[in-house]
């Protein structure tokens, strides 16, 4: 069974909670996705609005585990401080660690990521690092104590799917025992199925569901895709070939000319 830091999970679909048309639609999407883990963040609260309090009540009613993120952090200090604050508010040692390095692509600053990971793992955090498919970075992250890795598929919110198949396959092969979650860039269920077919353990989806015309329906579609992709991986996909190979028997073909 798949585990994240010794916590067993049945659903291989993790869902982000941002950018839904309404809280009610978010709740519907979470239910139809079958997810057990949703990502959340921390933002400034206005005393009059208490938007955060309402959101937190909603998430608690959904009965899912939360994975807080450090989205929007550009430095090690910001990310580490945000992680401390998230641990207190959400009561979990899990942290999806993001240290953003570049504005246009939201590419992780992998140097800052490794540094922040070392600090947080030493403090007992269970870090889910948002990283690239770079093997050396992954090596440093696991050496620092990560027991889950979250490589990007393509830039956050871009919907481009798996941008570097060769790199992702190499990462899967090199870290065969580490749960790998493809995070970011997945646009349609076929991208998610592809990630699972390649042997990735799970996917994290946000924009592809929340910005769909019908988010709850799309969440259900992703649930099917993830199941299909996993089943296909376990079934052992055929190897692609460059030339045609007839599928019907050649022996016994009638001579009708």
């Amino acid at each position: 069974m798949l585990t994240f830091y010794d916590v067993p999970v049945r659903s291989r679909l993790l869902l982000g909670t941002a950018r839904y048309p309404s809280p009610a639609i978010l709740a519907e999407a979470v239910r139809s996705s079958g997810t057990e883990v949703v990502t959340v963040s921390l933002r400034r609260e206005a005393a009059g609005e208490r938007a955060g309090q309402a959101f937190w009540s909603l998430v608690r009613e959904l009965g899912v585990r939360v994975l807080p993120n450090t989205a929007g952090c550009h430095t090690v200090k910001e990310a580490v401080t945000t992680a401390h604050m998230a641990r207190e508010v959400f009561g979990t040692r899990w942290i999806k660690l993001e240290v953003i390095g570049e504005e246009d692509t939201l590419q992780p600053d992998v140097f800052g990521l490794v540094e922040a990971t070392r600090i947080l793992c030493a403090e007992g955090f269970e870090v889910f690092p948002y990283t690239t498919e770079d093997l050396t970075v992954a090596e440093r992250l696991t050496a620092a104590g990560c027991r889950v890795l979250m490589p990007w598929g393509s830039p956050i919110g871009s919907g481009h799917g798996l941008n570097n198949l060769f790199g992702l396959k190499a990462l899967r092969a090199r870290f065969a025992q580490v749960p790998l979650i493809v995070d970011a860039g997945i646009g349609v269920p076929s991208h998610a199925a592809q990630a699972l077919e390649l042997g990735f353990d799970a996917v994290l989806i946000n924009t592809a569901v929340s910005q769909a015309a019908d988010p709850a329906r799309m969440a259900g579609a992703f649930a099917h895709a993830v199941s299909a992709g996993r089943e296909a991986f376990l079934a052992g996909p055929m190897e692609p070939r460059d030339m045609a190979v007839p599928s019907s028997p050649v022996v016994g073909t009638a001579l009708l000319s």
Binding site: T39, L42, R44, R50, G52, F55, N69, A71, V89
Partner: peptide, 24 residues
Amino acid sequence: AGERAAAMLAEGDRLEILAPMQGG
């Protein structure tokens, strides 16, 4: 939270108050 009562504020301090929010 446990240290808030002992945390004395001074003129010009920058206070951040963060709450759970939607995130990806």
